[in-house]
């Protein structure tokens, strides 16, 4: 049992020291080990300059009343991103501009 726990304990030790040393919870919080797993070998191309329509153009065609949208307001501009067009790995992130700012629409 102890043998099995050793690698975990060793990995955690530096954080423990940081924690004791700085007395800060944030060190434990943010300095975690980053060990991502590759699922798809190559990144997808970013989605840039997406097509944007007006409420009237989209209403009932791109998106229906009961469907979900991701809504955002930046400055004086509002935009809706229909969730049913954002599912699947190729559509996770939309690089867009709104209200004079560069935004990444994702949820």
């Amino acid at each position: 049992m102890m043998m099995m726990m050793m690698p975990t304990m060793m990995r955690r030790m530096p954080f423990l020291f940081l924690f004791i040393g700085l007395g800060s919870l944030s060190a434990v919080f943010s300095e975690e080990e980053f060990n991502p797993r590759v699922v798809i070998p190559k990144p997808f191309a970013p989605i840039v300059d997406p097509e944007i329509g007006t409420l009237e153009e989209a209403d009932g065609k791109v998106v229906k009343d009961e469907e979900l949208v991701l809504g955002v307001v930046v400055g004086r501009e509002a935009r809706a991103y229909p969730i049913n067009t954002l599912t699947g790995p190729r559509r996770e992130i939309i690089n867009d501009r709104l209200g004079g700012r560069s935004i990444a629409a994702t949820w």
């Binding site: 979900l68 949208v69 991701l70 955002v72 939309i94």
Partner: peptide, 21 residues
């Protein structure tokens, strides 16, 4: 960002634009 229905969003934001995909 907020996730809500299109109906609720367009009523709250009548000048909204929409992603077309």
């Amino acid at each position: 960002g907020v996730i809500t229905t299109w109906k609720a969003w367009k009523e709250a934001q009548p000048k909204t634009s929409v992603l077309v995909m």
